[in-house]
């Protein structure tokens, strides 16, 4: 075999083995475990923290208010839908307080008149005309509207 071909062949062998070495070193262990992706990433995503802990975590302390709410028009609402994510409050209830939204705009997000809101689904008012001088919660208890 001529020398130049030998050199070419050697270079080829070096390149291919370098590629295989790099591929082996750089491919994550769990790649291809279930398919053409890194299998461990599923467990990593599944381990992310939960922020909205659900009504069941509120009951142990706020049972009276939840009972009141469960008999009202707002029975289907989750506590955190209005009060925000409770994960910090559950860890340290004394220091981490949840928000108590009381603005007309906040109630209006559901209850202001909009033709797109199905009439049967929700009670709607014109928040510009309906007692504009005071907040909704002066008359309506949000847990027993």
């Amino acid at each position: 075999m001529p020398l130049h071909l030998k050199r070419l062949l050697m270079t080829g062998v070096v390149i291919v083995s370098l590629f295989l070495l790099l591929k082996h070193a750089l491919t994550p262990d769990s790649f291809g475990q279930y398919g053409h992706y890194r299998g461990n990433s599923m467990a990593e995503i599944a381990a992310l923290p939960v922020h909205y802990t659900g009504n069941s975590s509120c009951v142990s302390c706020h049972d009276t208010i939840i009972t009141m709410k469960s008999e009202s028009y707002h029975s289907d609402l989750s506590c955190e839908g209005c009060h925000g994510a409770a994960y910090k409050h559950i860890a340290s209830p004394k220091t981490e307080k949840l928000m108590k939204p009381d603005s007309r705009e906040f109630c209006g997000k559901c209850h202001s008149i909009n033709l797109a809101r199905p009439e049967k689904a929700i009670v709607q008012v014109n928040i510009k005309d309906h007692h504009p001088e005071k907040n909704c919660i002066k008359c309506h208890n949000p847990h027993q509207p």
Binding site: M42, I45, A46, A47, L48, P49, V50, H51, Y52, G54, H74, D76, L77, S78, E80, G81, C110, A121, I122
Partner: peptide, 23 residues
């Protein structure tokens, strides 16, 4: 969106569905 994969795997519903007021 992961369909709240981290919640589903813990037996919870996705956050958007748990908090939807009209279900």
């Amino acid at each position: 969106c992961t369909l709240c994969f981290h919640r589903i795997k813990k037996g919870l519903n996705p956050a958007c569905m748990d908090n939807c007021p009209t279900k």
